[in-house]
């Protein structure tokens, strides 16, 4: 049973560590740059974060694995855009520019519209 939950991007990083550990942090930076398109600082950030969670250890520039892949699962992260932008603008501007957000009801209505369209396509 998995005990550790991490985000998708962290999981992709961990996959590289699992495949290569034990690995020098310098080499890990190169691997992450090649595979993930990461900058050096991003990789070191990830090393620090995973160490804090206790998944890996970084000693003398050598990264080793503490937790095997089987005990880790990914978690879908929250949508930050909603957190970042919600309510940060004067209300009238938001309303003026983009209209209201889709309500659950509207989404449902649109979905049935699409389904109806699909059905029609199939018949013809």
């Amino acid at each position: 049973m998995a005990e550790y939950q991490i985000w998708d991007s962290e999981y992709r990083f961990m996959c590289i560590v699992w495949a290569n550990a034990p690995v020098g942090s310098g080499k890990l930076v190169k691997l992450c740059a090649a595979e993930l398109g990461w900058k050096k600082s991003t990789t070191y950030n990830a090393i620090r974060k995973m160490s804090e969670k206790g998944l890996i250890r970084n000693e003398d520039a050598l990264v080793t694995v503490l937790v095997p892949k089987e005990r880790v699962q990914t978690e879908e992260s929250g949508a930050f855009i909603a957190r970042t932008f919600a309510g940060s603008l004067p209300q009238f501007l938001t309303a003026f520019l983009s209209g209201r957000a889709l309500s659950a009801e509207e989404a449902e209505e649109l979905k049935s519209l699409i389904d109806a369209h699909r059905k029609k396509e199939e018949e013809t």
Binding site: A82, F85, L89, L93, S98, A101, A107, L110
Partner: peptide, 12 residues
């Protein structure tokens, strides 16, 4: 389009 609409509009 529907499944990827955020329901939020950060317009500016």
């Amino acid at each position: 389009l529907l499944s990827l609409s955020t329901g939020r509009h950060f317009a500016l």
